[in-house]
């Protein structure tokens, strides 16, 4: 146990992750600029209706980003985030509409399915030793293929009205001009839990240690394989949570909502927020800010009626810029680690 603690102390960011913080600060500046620009061009951007809509979309983007982030932490990736999400969406719809189960039971069932599918991914990766990209590419198609075969791609529209009402609910913070969706509050709570997990718990530190240097972590007694499987279970669980939020937002279970549409957003949030692709360093706050930037741009282009067509180009360019910044951040983090090792 002491050896584990030694390894954890050698981790680059017990205290404050300066690299992630600098990227978070620059993100805040960029977001403020975009908000100023959009509300200048179109005051409707700040209307309470648009803020509420933006918050709802943001909540889902944040959780999708988390689902990818927890796997990036181990140095892997999960292309099946969208497939797992859509499987849980349809499962919850089936449990509620066809079987008539109460809402909490259906949600628990869907979350359990998400965790189970994540476990399958993790198990296959650890067992075969094949890189997570190919395994999750294959499993993504297995999952969504199976879902389409079972549902015949028919949406379930007869869900209990409470779930849609929850998605449309508005909570007024201070004034009615600042409405907040309960979905956004859930996303923030999930963020706080993840923050505590990675910053203060042994498990979280082990995950980061395994991501930073699997061999060193294994030698210091971190069960690397188990940590990878746990991360994939967590990823599946978060994808399921995002799926449930989507069901609440739409008030229906649609088979076409996720799949490959989640691929880019799932990477955008964490990467913009300073999560290293090589593993070992994540930023929960950064991921939330990254998601906020993406949602802001999407909503702004919509409000300015530029339309969705150019959105993809903007998102791609922003990811490219972020990735270039990420490279220099990576070099910076490496230097800090070396300096600390030398000291």
């Amino acid at each position: 146990m002491t050896t584990t603690d030694d390894a954890l102390d050698a981790m680059p960011k017990r205290g404050i992750n300066f690299a992630a913080m600098s990227s978070a600060l620059s993100l805040v500046v960029i977001i403020v600029v975009f908000w100023a620009f959009f509300s200048w061009r179109q005051p409707g951007f700040l209307s309470s209706f648009n803020l509420l809509t933006l918050g709802r979309a943001l909540a889902i983007d944040i959780v999708i980003g988390f689902a990818q982030m927890v796997v990036l932490a181990t140095g892997g990736m999960n292309l099946a985030v969208g497939a797992i999400g859509v499987c849980t969406v349809m499962t919850s719809g089936y449990l509620m509409q066809t079987l008539g189960l109460p809402i909490p039971v259906a949600i628990l069932g869907a979350l359990a399915l998400g965790a189970a599918l994540g476990w399958l991914n993790g198990f296959a990766i650890v067992r075969t030793g094949v890189n997570s990209f190919v395994i999750t590419l294959a499993s993504a198609n297995l999952f969504s293929g199976a879902m389409l075969i079972l549902t015949k791609a028919v949406p379930l529209n007869g869900l209990p009205p409470e779930i849609g009402a929850f998605g449309k609910m508005r909570i007024n913070l201070f004034t009615p001009a600042l409405p907040v969706s309960p979905l956004l509050i859930i996303a923030i709570v999930i963020g706080i839990v993840l923050f505590i997990l990675y910053r203060y718990s042994v498990l979280g530190r082990r995950i980061l240690a395994a991501g930073a240097n699997p061999r060193a972590a294994a030698m210091s007694g971190v069960p690397v394989d188990r940590v990878i499987v746990i991360s994939h279970v967590l990823s599946g669980l978060l994808a399921a949570a995002a799926g449930m939020m989507l069901v609440a937002r739409l008030g229906a279970a649609m088979p076409s909502v996720a799949g490959e549409d989640w691929l880019l957003p799932s990477f955008l949030g964490p990467v913009l927020g300073g999560t290293l692709l090589s593993g070992g360093a994540i930023s929960v706050v950064g991921t939330m800010l990254g998601a906020l930037l993406v949602t802001t741009i999407r909503s702004g282009l919509l409000v300015l009626q530029i339309g969705n067509f150019w959105l993809q180009l903007f998102l791609g360019l922003i990811l490219l810029v972020a990735v270039l910044a990420d490279r220099y951040r990576g070099i910076f983090a490496e230097r800090r680690r070396l300096r600390r090792a030398a000291a």
Binding site: L263, L264, F309, L311, Q312, G316, L317, L319, L320, V323
Partner: peptide, 9 residues
């Protein structure tokens, strides 16, 4: 992934 999004855009 980024250039794919840009090309599609």
């Amino acid at each position: 992934l980024a250039t794919a999004s840009a090309f599609t855009g």
